[in-house]
Design a protein around this nucleic acid. Structure first.
Lengths: 197, 197
DNA sequence: TCTATCATGTAACCAGTTACATGATTTT
DNA sequence: AAAATCATGTAACTGGTTACATGATAGA
């Protein structure tokens, strides 16, 4: 069902999650997120963080505490999580884990329009993709292993393992597709419209 | 590398793709897209279509032709693809097919924050997810079969087959995860912060 | 004929990104 | 001591979504 949340951006969820460890200000949270490598599963920038804090505040999930207190650095506002915030965090996470949502990965879209390219070219492009996929797979694998070597608990690596699984599936699918395209040449040309380049 | 496109929204790509069949106006294209079930691989609404046409026009990829011509229905503007538009379509598609991009599926994010929920609850939630996944899988399968029965060429179903593969992988991963969680109870509690609810 | 739904579009709003601003450290 | 970079924030812009407007058929 995916109810309409007051704050929809998943970055907001991460913020709430980190605020359970105590109050902070947006800039600092940014550093923390990057330090923890959360930027691999979350898209955000400097600016978007201030944005989300603002939204969370309007929604009543966080509230400013120590505002104004400046070491000798620029002014800054420190926020803490509210009770409503904690509830939202839990509820939201529950939903995300329990209910798969319909998503729109770019490759899916590309596939749905692929008929607009001539088959020979598609074969070539897919081959390129395959090798890129192999590279990404390797580097992800490496990062996981490195983390494990540093004694990071696997609990904190599940998302990367999941990515790995997805990469393998994609590679398999692409290979399989490559195999089938040859047989489709005739139906394909019926779909393509323009000429070269 | 993913160069910065003048129009970034994939809906724009779909528009260009359909415009190879001849000029139309936004509203009509909307109907067509839904009729073709493209709304399964593309997220759009009435409003966003007008948006994208506007952007495409500013970028020089489409140009108005028959503007003003009203049957007796409201005013409407018919657009046709330009040469630049055709080039963009091809180039963009090539990139999408050849180069995998780093994406942020919601489940990945959820996994990365899952430590904020107690393990027993996570087990329960994942079990729920598993059954939802089975449902989705079944209905996707069904849609594919129905289409095949209607003699739709498999070329136009690749994206759904790909989804199927992803669903299977996800289900497998979740099952596997369920198995491993039991052993993690101790490390897990160290990560959880708050109390109940 | 009244009401619903279709057909078409614009305007107002909200979220996210990029660019700008400014004092404090660190590096060269 | 000049240049670079860090720390912190605001403002301006751009893209996308939602809500509104209005005439035209079609169904009750």
């Amino acid at each position: 069902m995916a109810k309409k949340r007051k704050v929809g951006n998943l970055l907001g969820l991460a913020v709430l999650s980190y605020l359970t460890q105590g109050p902070t200000h947006p800039y600092d949270l940014g550093r923390t997120l990057r330090a923890h490598g959360d930027d691999r599963s979350l898209k955000f920038t400097h600016g978007s963080l201030y944005m989300v804090f603002q939204q969370l505040e309007k929604a009543g999930f966080v509230a400013p505490v120590e505002t104004g207190r400046a070491g000798l650095r620029p002014e800054r506002t420190v926020y803490a999580m509210t009770d409503a915030g904690l509830r939202e965090l839990r509820d939201w996470l529950r939903e995300l884990v329990a209910e798969p949502e319909h998503e729109y990965p770019r490759f899916v879209t590309a596939l749905s329009l692929i008929g607009a390219l001539p088959p020979d070219e598609v074969v070539e492009l897919l081959t390129t993709r395959l090798s890129r996929l192999t590279e990404v797979r390797a580097s992800t694998r490496q990062e996981i292993d490195a983390a494990l070597a540093r004694d990071v608990h696997p609990l904190f690596l599940v998302e990367e393992e999941y990515r790995l699984a997805l990469l393998d599936t994609e590679a398999g699918f692409v290979e399989n597709l490559l195999g089938r395209i040859a047989g489709w040449r005739s139906a394909w040309s019926a779909a393509v419209s323009g000429g070269k380049s």
